[in-house]
């Protein structure tokens, strides 16, 4: 008996993060029944992306060009580099509009127990890039976990003639102290700034 394509599509959609069987079923029925044009556009775009998307040769961000839009943008500060863990971190920082430099995406963080090494994160490439592009400031925006801190610390240990900073930790905007966890409060007190 041949497989019903509808069930195959539902099964395929469950690979998406946060999509279970029920949501996949709803998506599949919507695409096939209510929005066939949209479904076709989605299928074509997805196929094109799979063929064309690669990592930027400079920053390792996902892009359809060999050099991504941010790296080739000459209006951006070429001497300031923000190091992040994932492509979504770039999008998160970009959405704030608060940073006009360039990025380097590690695609993870150092974790000896999980076997993620400096080579896996392209740290040798990052160090070479910092040297060759004459970067003046490196902002380490890895996550606020022991592994994220170790990654930042490891990169910092390899940089001597560059200004290096770590993003600060603290109380979220609009947050009240009594609802913030103890570790965050302790870090915020440690990293307090003079006003």
């Amino acid at each position: 008996m041949s497989k019903d394509l509808l069930y195959e599509l539902i099964e395929a959609l469950t690979i998406l993060p946060g999509v279970g069987k029920k949501s996949a079923q709803r998506m599949a029925l919507f695409l096939l029944d209510k929005n066939k044009d949209g479904a076709l556009h989605l299928a074509q775009t997805l196929e094109e992306c799979l063929d064309a998307i690669q990592r930027c040769e400079i920053c390792r961000q996902l892009t359809s060009e060999s050099i991504c839009r941010i790296c080739s943008d000459e209006s951006r500060d070429a001497y300031s580099l923000c190091v992040v863990e994932s492509p979504s971190d770039v999008l998160a920082i970009e959405s704030t509009g608060g940073f006009k430099g360039k990025y380097f995406v590690l695609m993870g963080r150092l974790s000896p127990i999980d076997g993620v090494s400096p080579d896996d994160l392209g740290i040798p490439d990052l160090l070479r890039h910092i040297q060759s592009a004459k970067i003046e400031e490196v902002i380490l925006a890895t996550s606020s976990t022991v592994e994220g801190d170790a990654t930042a610390s490891f990169i910092n240990d390899h940089l001597d003639s560059v200004k290096v900073s770590r993003i600060s930790y603290g109380i979220p905007i609009g947050g009240e102290l009594e609802y913030v966890d103890g570790n965050t409060i302790a870090r915020a007190i440690q990293g307090r700034i003079e006003i």
């Binding site: 000896p112 022991v146 801190d149 570790n183």
Partner: peptide, 18 residues
């Protein structure tokens, strides 16, 4: 949540801790 203690001081000695 009242018992949770501070994690390591960081960033120093993180390699040792790991």
């Amino acid at each position: 949540s009242n018992f949770v203690s501070q994690s390591v001081k960081g960033p120093h000695d993180l390699y040792t801790y790991l």
